[in-house]
Computed example of a mutant assay.
Amino acid sequence: MNATAARLTALGRAELTLLARNRNNLFVALLMPVLMIFLLRSSLSGTDDLPMGVAEATVVGGTGMVLVLVVYMNLVATYVARREELVLKRLRTGEARDTEILAGAALPASVIALVQCAILTALGPAVLDASAPRRPDLLLAGVVAGILLLVGLAAVTTVITRSVESAGLTTLPFFLVSAMGSGLMVPTEALPDAVAPVAELLPLSGVMELVRAGWLGVGQVGGKELLGAGLTTVAWIVLSVFAVQKWFRWEPRR
C-alpha cells in the first residue's frame, strides 16, 4: 500500500510539473471554468421558466463545468501527449501497474477539480447569492463519482484521438451533449418530454442529478430519481473501465 501511494505521488508530482509548464492546459484547468461559470450565469439570467433559482442553476451547472473542463478535456490531451511521447510505454516497463499510471496522470487534474468545486461551494452563497448546499454528502459523492467517471471516459476518448491538437475536436461532442442534455447549461426539467428520458441516460446525467440533490436537497429531486442517478453513474463507470481495459492504446499508432 505504501509503495502504491509512493508511486502515485511520484507520478502525480511529475504530471503537475508538466501541467504547470503547459500554458494551454493550465488555462483550461484554472481559468476556463471560472469564465464558463460567469457565462453560464449570464445566459441563465434571461431564462424565465427555470425550475430553480438562477444562482442555484449556476452553481449546479458550474460544478459540472469544472468536472468536464478540468478532468475530462484536460486529461484527454494529457493522456494523448504522454502516449505520443512514449512516456506511457516507458512507465509500463517499471514497477507501476497500468491503473497506477493512469491514476497518477489524472491525480493533479482531479485535485484541482476538487479544490475548484470546494471554492465554488464556499463562495457560491456569497458571490452568486445561492443557497448553501443542503446535502453536502451527496454533493461530495456526485463530484467524486464524476471525477472517476470522467477519468475513465477521458482514457476511452484517447482511442479516437490521434494527436494533442485533435483533442479539442474529439472532446467537443461529449462537452456539447453534456452541456445541453445532462443539466450543465440547460436544466433537465426544461428539456422537452420526448427528450428527457434519453437525456437521463447520458454519461454525466446521473452525476449532475447527485450534484443537484446535494445543492437543493433530496426533497427537490426525489428518492427514486436519486437511486436511478446513482445506478446510471455506476453503470457508466463500469462500462468506461471495461472500455479502457479493452481498447486503451499505450503506444502511438505507426
Score class of each variant (00 low, 15 high):
Thr17Gln: 12
Thr17Ala: 15
Thr17Gly: 14
Thr17Lys: 08
Leu18Ile: 03
Leu18His: 12
Leu19Val: 08
Leu19Trp: 14
Leu19Cys: 08
Arg21Val: 00
Asn22His: 08
Asn22Asp: 14
Asn25His: 11
Phe27Ala: 14
Ala29Cys: 12
Ala29Ile: 09
Leu30His: 00
Leu30Ala: 13
Leu30Met: 11
Leu30Thr: 05
Leu30Val: 10
Leu30Pro: 00
Leu30Asn: 01
Leu31Glu: 01
Leu31Asn: 03
Met32Trp: 07
Pro33Cys: 09
Pro33Glu: 06
Val34Tyr: 00
Val34Arg: 02
Leu35Ile: 14
Met36Gln: 13
Met36His: 03
Met36Trp: 06
Ile37His: 02
Phe38Val: 13
Leu39Ser: 14
Leu39Gln: 10
Leu40Lys: 02
Leu40Tyr: 01
Arg41Asn: 08
Arg41Trp: 01
Ser42Ile: 13
Ser43Leu: 14
Leu44Pro: 10
Ser45Asn: 12
Gly46Leu: 07
Gly46His: 06
Gly46Thr: 05
Asp49Met: 11
Asp49Tyr: 09
Asp49Gly: 07
Leu50Cys: 11
Pro51Leu: 04
Met52Cys: 00
Gly53Cys: 09
Val54Trp: 03
Ala55Glu: 06
Ala55Ser: 12
Ala57Arg: 05
Val59His: 01
Gly61Asp: 07
Gly61Ala: 08
Gly61Trp: 03
Gly62Ile: 04
Thr63Cys: 09
Thr63Ala: 04
Gly64Val: 10
Gly64Glu: 12
Val66Ile: 15
Val66Ala: 03
Leu67His: 13
Val68Met: 15
Val68Tyr: 11
Val70Trp: 10
Tyr72Ile: 10
Met73Gln: 15
Met73Gly: 00
Met73Cys: 11
Met73Lys: 07
Leu75Phe: 12
Val76Cys: 04
Val76His: 02
Val76Ser: 04
Val76Asp: 06
Ala77Tyr: 04
Ala77Cys: 03
Ala77Met: 11
Thr78Lys: 09
Thr78Phe: 06
Tyr79Lys: 01
Tyr79Gln: 04
Val80Trp: 06
Ala81Trp: 11
Arg83Ser: 13
Arg83Gly: 13
Arg83Tyr: 11
Arg83Pro: 12
